[in-house]
Deep mutational scan, measured.
Amino acid sequence: CFKERTRHLLREWYLQDPYPNPSKKRELAQATGLTPTQVGNWFKNRRQRDR
């Protein structure tokens, strides 16, 4: 489970761009302490949920 702060950051970025490029994923991974793969999976799952 991700911390509330991490989820908030991910949601904020998702609203700006639901399809982040690899450099954005790396930047967000550094900001949250997650791996770029975890960030990518979160975005993928969130896009699925929004369908």
Rank of each mutant, 00 (worst) to 15 (best):
Q38A: 10
P22R: 05
T37C: 12
T6F: 04
Y14C: 00
C1R: 05
V39H: 03
Q48L: 06
E12N: 07
N21I: 05
K44W: 05
P22Y: 07
R51P: 09
Q38W: 03
T32I: 05
K3A: 11
W42K: 00
K3H: 00
R49H: 01
D50T: 11
R26V: 14
P22E: 14
L28Q: 01
W13P: 00
L15A: 14
L28W: 03
G40C: 09
F2D: 14
R47A: 05
E27A: 10
T35V: 04
P20L: 08
R7K: 15
V39D: 00
N21Q: 12
F2A: 12
Y19N: 11
R5L: 11
Y19C: 07
Y14G: 06
H8A: 15
Y19A: 06
A31N: 12
R47P: 02
G33Q: 06
K25H: 13
T35L: 04
R51L: 07
L10M: 05
Q30W: 14
N45A: 08
W42F: 05
P22W: 09
L10R: 00
W13A: 13
R46C: 10
Y19L: 07
Q30I: 14
K44T: 08
N41A: 06
L28Y: 12
L10E: 04
P22S: 13
L28C: 03
F43N: 01
R49E: 14
D17W: 01
P36S: 11
Y14W: 02
Y19I: 08
S23V: 09
W13F: 10
T37P: 05
R49K: 10
N45L: 08
R49Y: 08
K3R: 12
K24N: 09
Q48K: 15
L28H: 01
L9K: 10
H8D: 14
T6H: 09
W42D: 03
G40L: 05
N41Q: 12
P18D: 04
L10W: 01
A31Q: 13
E27T: 06
N21F: 02
T32N: 02
R26D: 15
D50C: 04
R5V: 09
T37S: 13
S23Y: 04
P20V: 05
P36T: 12
K44A: 11
T32C: 11
R7D: 15
S23D: 14
K44S: 09
R5M: 14
E4S: 09
K44I: 08
E4H: 06
R26S: 11
R49A: 09
Y14M: 02
N41G: 05
D50G: 05
R46L: 05
D50A: 08
L9N: 02
N41I: 05
A31S: 09
E4W: 09
W13Q: 13
L9Q: 09
T37H: 13
R46T: 13
E4R: 08
W13K: 06
R5P: 09
P36W: 09
P36V: 11
R5Y: 10
W42E: 04
E27S: 04
P18K: 08
W13G: 11
F2K: 15
F43S: 02
G40I: 03
N45K: 11
A31M: 13
H8E: 15
L15D: 08
Q30K: 13
L9Y: 09
A31P: 03
R51C: 04
P36N: 06
K25I: 14
W13D: 03
V39C: 00
Q30C: 09
P20T: 01
L34R: 04
R51M: 07
P36G: 05
H8K: 15
Q16I: 06
R46E: 14
R7Y: 11
L34Y: 06
Y14D: 01
K24G: 08
D17T: 01
A31I: 15
D17I: 00
F2Q: 11
L28T: 05
Y14F: 12
T32K: 01
N21P: 06
C1G: 13
K24C: 07
Y14E: 03
F2P: 08
Q16R: 11
L28P: 00
R11F: 05
G40N: 06
K25Y: 09
T37V: 12
R49L: 09
E12S: 08
R11H: 07
N45T: 07
E12G: 08
K44Q: 10
K25W: 06
P18L: 00
L10S: 01
T37I: 12
T32S: 09
K44L: 06
E4N: 13
D50Y: 02
W42N: 02
Q38N: 07
T37L: 11
G33H: 05
E27R: 07
T35I: 01
Y14N: 01
K25D: 04
L9R: 09
P36F: 15
R7L: 14
P20Y: 06
Q38V: 02
K25F: 10
K25R: 12
A29R: 00
A31R: 11
T6M: 13
N21H: 15
P22N: 06
F43R: 01
D50V: 01
V39S: 01
W13V: 11
T35N: 06
K3D: 14
W42H: 03
R26L: 14
R47Y: 05
D50I: 00
E27F: 09
K25Q: 15
Y19P: 05
H8L: 15
T6D: 07
R11P: 00
P36D: 08
P22Q: 09
T6C: 03
P22T: 12
R46I: 02
G33F: 00
Y14P: 00
K3G: 08
K25G: 03
C1Y: 09
K24L: 09
Q48R: 15
R7C: 09
N21A: 10
G33T: 04
L10G: 00
Q30S: 13
Q48D: 10
R46Q: 14
F43V: 00
V39M: 01
F2S: 15
R26A: 15
N45I: 08
N45P: 00
P22M: 14
L34V: 02
D50S: 09
N21M: 13
G40P: 03
R49D: 12
E27W: 10
D17F: 02
A29G: 08
R11G: 12
R46M: 09
P36H: 06
R51T: 06
L28A: 03
Q16P: 03
D17G: 01
Q48T: 08
R7H: 10
Q16H: 08
T6Q: 11
F2N: 15
K24D: 11
Q16D: 15
L15E: 12
E4G: 07
R7W: 07
V39K: 06
T32P: 03
R11W: 11
Q16F: 10
Q48H: 14
Q38D: 05
P20C: 04
K25L: 14
N41E: 12
P18I: 03
L15R: 12
N41Y: 00
D50M: 08
K3P: 12
L34E: 05
S23I: 06
N45M: 08
R11L: 13
T35W: 02
R46Y: 06
P22C: 15
Y14I: 05
V39A: 01
Q38I: 04
F2I: 15
E27D: 11
P36M: 11
K24F: 00
L15P: 01
N45F: 04
D17L: 03
T37M: 10
A29Y: 00
D17Q: 04
K3E: 12
L9P: 05
